[in-house]
């Protein structure tokens, strides 16, 4: 699997990163060399191996359905870029 600059552009767009053509070129070169490293994996036979998603083989612990939080809106919004009347403001969302 070789990475193309179109792949890099698509990935940058999916990740919401603005990149110039020069940056795309540079990222392409570096990512290609990293994928050179990563491709070593493909030689390994992993038939029948269960993927390991967590370090511990445990089940999810469940929380009782009890309200524990109170409003901290003012505190939380004190670090927000733009708020008005308790709402976070963003450029217009068009559906």
């Amino acid at each position: 699997m070789s990475l193309t600059t179109d792949d890099v552009k698509k990935v940058a767009s999916l990740a919401r990163l603005a990149m110039t053509d020069a940056e795309i070129q540079a990222a392409h070169a570096q990512m290609s060399s990293i994928f050179g490293l990563i491709e070593e994996m493909q030689a390994v036979n992993t038939d029948g191996i269960e993927p390991m998603a967590h370090a511990q083989d445990l089940a999810q612990r469940l929380r009782e359905d009890v309200v524990s939080e109170t409003s901290q809106r003012e505190l939380f919004q004190s670090v927000a870029p733009q708020v008005e009347r308790g709402l976070y403001l963003v450029p217009q969302v068009i559906e």
Binding site: R63, V67, E69, S71, R73, F76, Q77, R85, G86
Partner: peptide, 18 residues
């Protein structure tokens, strides 16, 4: 996934916990 209330009609973001 958190202990914030789900009651309908609260003031904006007052039930938006961390």
């Amino acid at each position: 996934f958190s202990g914030a209330s789900t009651a309908f009609g609260a003031e904006p973001n007052t039930q938006a916990d961390a």
